[in-house]
Amino acid sequence: MERYKKWGFGLWAVIQKETGGLIGQCGLTWQPWKEQKVLEIGYLFQRAHWHKGYAVEAAKACKKYAFEVLKAPEVCSIIRNTNIPSQKAALRIGMRPADSWIKHYKGIAMPHDRYIVLRK
């Protein structure tokens, strides 16, 4: 709710049209990346709904919103280097690998790659 108050956007619920059930979330958030904040398309789905194109469909809508409504010059997805399905989803919406960084979660070093796409 704080993100919505501050920026007017955040993660949105993803509802499956056929069932009306909540299957995940996707949206835009500002994320730390090295020495800056970047506008990220993030997506997270229940495992039962992986590999069905939902992440790509939702991420495309977020990209469109970022470029057409927010007029963002670029958006990215920050993806763990071992998360091949999310990397493929980023590629399918026109993103390309840009750079890498080690993020630390609870004392564990986790390499991440940043995929970006520029507004045309």
Rank of each mutant, 00 (worst) to 15 (best):
S77K: 03
Y54Q: 06
W101T: 04
T82A: 11
Q25F: 14
E74L: 14
A109S: 02
R3I: 01
L118V: 02
Q25A: 14
V117T: 06
A90S: 01
P111W: 08
V117W: 11
A61I: 14
C26P: 09
Q25H: 15
L91V: 00
R3T: 01
G20N: 12
K120V: 01
P85Y: 11
W7D: 00
G27K: 08
F45A: 08
W30N: 10
A90P: 06
F9Y: 05
L11Y: 00
S100Q: 15
I108F: 02
Q31C: 06
W101F: 14
Q87T: 12
L118M: 12
A90E: 14
L44E: 05
D99R: 02
H51S: 15
D113N: 14
R96M: 15
I23F: 07
I23S: 05
G27V: 11
I79N: 00
L118E: 12
A59H: 13
A58P: 15
Y115F: 06
M1Q: 11
G8N: 02
R119L: 00
W12S: 15
Q16T: 11
I93L: 07
S77W: 01
E74I: 02
Y65F: 15
L91C: 01
L11H: 11
W33H: 04
P111D: 06
M1I: 06
L39P: 13
E18H: 03
K5R: 03
G42K: 05
G94N: 10
